[in-house]
Simulated assay, not measured.
Amino acid sequence: MTTTHSITEPYQPPDVPFQRTATPPPQPLPYHRLALTTGNHRWWRPLVGTGVVLAGAILVMLAVIIASEIAGAVVGRPRDADGNVIWGGIGDTALALLGISLSIPVVLLAARWVQRRAAGTVSSVAGGLRWRRLGLCLAVALPVSATSLGISMLLPEPEGSGPELTWAGLSPFLLGLATVCLLVPFQAAAEEYVFRGWLLQAVGAWCRSPWVAVTPQAVLFAAAHGWGTPWGFADLVVFGLITGALTIRTGGLEAAIALHVLNNLLPLGILSAIAGGLESEETAADMNWMTLAVDVPMVSLYAAAVLWLTHRRPVSFRSGN
């Protein structure tokens, strides 16, 4: 006789094929921490990426110079004592602005290739440039920049400074104005993408504090303009600090780009009307203490207006919100 024994086994749930643990959604991040938006961040990526941005910016500028030399040889342009092609004030200004402008794709590619994140996270927490916000900031920046420029033009200047106020002529004026209107927005935006964008986020990848992230890029921004006067250096540092803080507070580069574009576009537009105006090598780094006393309050006024606008028309300053 055969006896059957029943063996009781503990219950086990059936296997569910391809079952995976759900990945928790990423936490909202402020602008200066957006390099951490993916799981690909490593401590060395901001360093390598900064090297790529620097090398890439140098390479694109060299490419512009080489193209200029080739074009100059083809059309038979004259050369200076050092053998460099002479294009004149408008042409040389265009080449300088173009060389800086090409830094934008360099920054975006470094974010994508080196940091393995969406390139648009350099623009804002929304993953791209917010055009409506940029338009609002331009509307705020226009009267502020125009007022600052107007007051500065009324200030006394040291004897012999600045180009002689002689009408350039209609054709040179229109050509110069078209050149600066076309290229200055890209040039100013490129500087913002490098300093308030890439460098701010590179430091922010290591440091939670927004002020730690803001400070180095402001000093480097001033240094990149060369050493002119202590007043000019201080003004550029303050500009970098204020626009850096605005970038974090508004969650994107729009406010900084708007002010930078108009601060460059308005004076260069006026210089286009002056014979030899665009040949001047004077920059913001060369300003005197009187111009500093005008510029800093006006930049602060712009920041206050943008923050008030942000309060009235709220904008996300963290990713994913």
Rank of each mutant, 00 (worst) to 15 (best):
L129A: 06
V294T: 07
T21S: 12
G51M: 09
D15G: 09
L136W: 10
G228R: 00
V203R: 01
P17E: 04
Y193R: 02
I65V: 13
W198R: 03
V203M: 03
L200Y: 04
D15F: 12
W308R: 11
Q201V: 08
W231P: 01
V299K: 04
L246K: 01
A57G: 13
F233V: 10
L241W: 11
P25W: 02
W206N: 06
A55Y: 09
V219I: 14
T38K: 09
I274R: 01
W167V: 03
C181E: 03
R79T: 15
R112H: 12
I100T: 14
G49M: 01
L134T: 00
W227F: 15
A202D: 03
A213N: 03
A202S: 13
A273I: 05
F221K: 00
D92A: 15
A73F: 09
Q12S: 14
V48Y: 09
R112P: 02
A63T: 09
I270L: 15
A205H: 01
L62C: 08
L268D: 05
A119K: 02
L262K: 04
Q217A: 08
L301H: 01
A218Y: 02
T243V: 10
W289P: 05
S300V: 09
L155D: 06
I151R: 03
E164P: 08
D235F: 13
P230F: 07
L47S: 11
S68P: 09
P210R: 06
E281N: 14
S300G: 15
L29T: 02
F18P: 05
L259Q: 09
I65P: 08
W44L: 15
A189V: 00
A188E: 00
R20E: 14
L220N: 02
L292C: 11
L165R: 12
V53M: 06
Q12L: 15
V315L: 12
S124L: 09
F233I: 10
R45Y: 11
G128A: 09
V107Q: 00
T310K: 15
Q27L: 14
L292V: 08
E281H: 10
V315T: 12
W43H: 05
T166P: 13
A189K: 00
R79K: 14
S145K: 01
A22K: 07
L266F: 14
G226S: 00
Y31A: 06
D80Y: 11
T50V: 09
P297I: 00
S145M: 12
S316W: 08
G56L: 05
R132D: 09
T247A: 15
L36V: 04
W131C: 04
T179Q: 08
V144A: 03
G269P: 07
P230Y: 01
W131R: 05
A305G: 07
I100G: 10
